[in-house]
C-alpha cells in the first residue's frame, strides 16, 4: 500500500503576473472539474490550496502575498512542486453566455471554466479587476471572448470595480461566475436580482486538511473544501451578508 499523498511536478514555464505574481505551468496532469483545487506544498515552507488554472498540464496562478506564495512565485523553470488533489466540487456545466467576474487572484479559479466553455463554442465575457495595475492577473489569457479590465485607482482600464463595469451584462448572460475578495462577493449577493441568471461563486478560505475533516474552512455550516469551493450564490448569501463575529 503506497501512501502517494503528493504528486511531484516540475515547473516548465513561468509567466509573470503583475509586479510580483506568477503563473506556473508544470509538467504533470491532474484531470479535474473547472473550479476544483489542489493543496500545494513546498517542503520547509507551507501548504495551501490553489485553484487549477489548467489540469493538462497543471497550471497554477499565484499572487505573492505570504511565505508560500512568495516562494512559489519565485520558482525557476525546473523547480519542483508537491501537489495533492484535486479536491472539492467545481462548476456545473456552463451554458452559452458566460459572464465571468474576477477580483484579484480570484480570476484564476474561473480560467479553466472559460477555456472549456470557449472550446465548446460559448461566449465568455470577462471582467478582471484589481486595486491597481500591478495586481491585475491573467489579462493575457487567450480564453476570454472579450475582456474588460478595471482598477480601483483607475491606473488601468475602467476606474471602478468589476460589478460596476459589468452591470449591463447581467441580463445578457445565462450564467454568472465570480471569484474574488469576500466584500466583492458580498456586494454581488446584495445586488442580486431575481431576473439574473444563476450565479456561481468560488469561495476562498484558509484550509488545513482540504478534505472535509478539520472544519477550519467552514462558511456557516458549509465546508468550503468538501461542499465547495464552488457554491450557488443563494447557498451562501446569508453567510456572505452576515456581520463578522
Amino acid at each position: 500500500m503506497l501512501d502517494n499523498i503528493y504528486q511531484v511536478m516540475r515547473v516548465t514555464e513561468r509567466i509573470p503576473e503583475g509586479k510580483c505574481g506568477a503563473t506556473l505551468v508544470l509538467d504533470g496532469e491532474l484531470p479535474c472539474q473547472a473550479g476544483q483545487f489542489v493543496m500545494v506544498w513546498l517542503p520547509g515552507v507551507e501548504e495551501r490550496p490553489f485553484t487549477l488554472v489548467n489540469d493538462t498540464p497543471v497550471t497554477l496562478t499565484v499572487a505573492a502575498i505570504g511565505p508560500l506564495t512568495r516562494a512559489l512565485a519565485g520558482l525557476e523553470v525546473g523547480a519542483r512542486v508537491w501537489l495533492r488533489g484535486p479536491y472539492g466540487h467545481g462548476f456545473p456545466p456552463p451554458g452559452r453566455r458566460l459572464l465571468v467576474l474576477g477580483g484579484g487572484s480570484g480570476i484564476a479559479s474561473l480560467a479553466l471554466l472559460a477555456r472549456r466553455a470557449l472550446a465548446e463554442g460559448a461566449e465568455v465575457r470577462t471582467y478582471i479587476g484589481a486595486r491597481t495595475t500591478d495586481l491585475l492577473m491573467l489579462p493575457w489569457y487567450p480564453h476570454w471572448s472579450t475582456l474588460t479590465l478595471t482598477t480601483d485607482d483607475g491606473s488601468q482600464g475602467i476606474h471602478g470595480n468589476v460589478l460596476q463595469a459589468a452591470a449591463e451584462q447581467f441580463a445578457w448572460a445565462d450564467g454568472i461566475y465570480a471569484c474574488g475578495p469576500e466584500p466583492m462577493l458580498a456586494a454581488l449577493a446584495r445586488s442580486r436580482r431575481s431576473d439574473w441568471p444563476p450565479c456561481w461563486i468560488n469561495l476562498e478560505r484558509v484550509m488545513r486538511c482540504g478534505i472535509g475533516v478539520c472544519g477550519s474552512c467552514h462558511c456557516g455550516s458549509h465546508l468550503v473544501c468538501a461542499d465547495g469551493p464552488v457554491f450557488n450564490l443563494e447557498q451562501v448569501t446569508a453567510e456572505l451578508l452576515a456581520p463578522p463575529h
Binding site: 500500500m1 499523498i5 501548504e47 488545513r208 486538511c209 478534505i211 475533516v213 478539520c214
Partner: peptide, 28 residues
Amino acid sequence: SKSCSVAPRTGHPNPTVLPWAGGLINAV
C-alpha cells in the same frame, strides 16, 4: 467541539492534516 484553551492558539503551519493508507495523521 474542538479543544479550547484559555488563550487563543493559531496551531501549527500546514501541512497539518494528511490522509494516508491507514487513515489520517494530524498535527493541527
